[in-house]
């Protein structure tokens, strides 16, 4: 029996599977984002009359990989400016609205700087921005943790396919993908080496991955 021809792969919006960012790329992207954050903190002081500058900034990583990413950004900012920036992590598991689909997982620490986040510029840091649901959960978590002056979002990769009106303020790299593809961010602290990969997902799997595959 003759098989129906498969739809051509090229009709998918995604790029070719493979390595998206090498270790060197990741380092460069992180450096660029650090510079952008420094600028933003400085301009914030001018615009809002807030007196914080970099002292006003708190980088809050979303576990798993947002947490080391936030620490790296802080380290780079300190390297460029000599100023130490507050870093925290906010585990969002207990704020997710899709637990029923994903099942439970072990929780990770939520740690905020001693000075807290009230009245400060909080930048949420995550590895991949996809549906936006993680960020929504993080915003809900932040609401319970304090009252920041401004909340912004920094992501290493934005792969599109938003399901919520959420946009990143700092993006390391924009990557067009197809929904079925997976974007995997590997960081040395967790995975032993830095790289970002795009892989083809299982055929028929529409479940958002990448951002959620933490």
């Amino acid at each position: 029996m003759a098989r129906a021809p498969e739809p051509a792969r090229s009709t998918a919006p995604g790029g070719a599977p493979g390595t998206l960012l090498t270790s060197a790329d990741v380092a460069r992207v992180v450096d660029r984002m650090a510079h952008q954050l420094i600028e933003r903190a400085a301009s914030g002081r001018a615009e809002d009359g807030a007196d914080g500058g970099l002292a006003d900034l708190v980088l809050v990583g979303i576990p798993t990989r947002g947490a080391p990413l936030a620490r790296r950004l802080a380290a780079r900012i300190e390297a460029f400016t000599g100023t130490r920036v507050d870093v925290g992590t906010a585990d969002i598991t207990l704020y997710r609205d899709d637990l029923r689909l994903r099942g439970v997982r072990a929780l990770e620490p939520t740690v905020l700087p001693d000075a807290g986040i009230d009245g400060r510029l909080v930048v949420l840091v995550d590895d991949v921005l996809f549906s936006g649901r993680s960020v929504r959960a993080a915003l809900d978590a932040l609401r319970d943790l304090g009252r920041p002056r401004v909340v912004q979002l920094a992501v290493l990769v934005d792969r599109g396919h938003r399901e919520l009106p959420i946009k990143a303020d700092f993006v390391g790299k924009n990557v067009p993908t197809s929904r079925s593809q997976q974007v995997r961010v590997h960081l040395a602290e967790i995975d032993g080496a830095d790289e970002v990969l795009v892989t083809d997902g299982e055929p028929g799997v529409r479940e958002p991955r990448g951002e959620e595959a933490r």
């Binding site: 207990l94 072990a106 929780l107």
Partner: peptide
């Protein structure tokens, strides 16, 4: 036990001791 510890830590010192889970 680990989850309880994380919950404890996440709620420590918070005004709003409630999670939407």
């Amino acid at each position: 036990l680990d989850t309880a510890a994380q919950i404890d830590q996440a709620l420590a010192g918070r005004e709003v001791k409630k999670l939407p889970t």
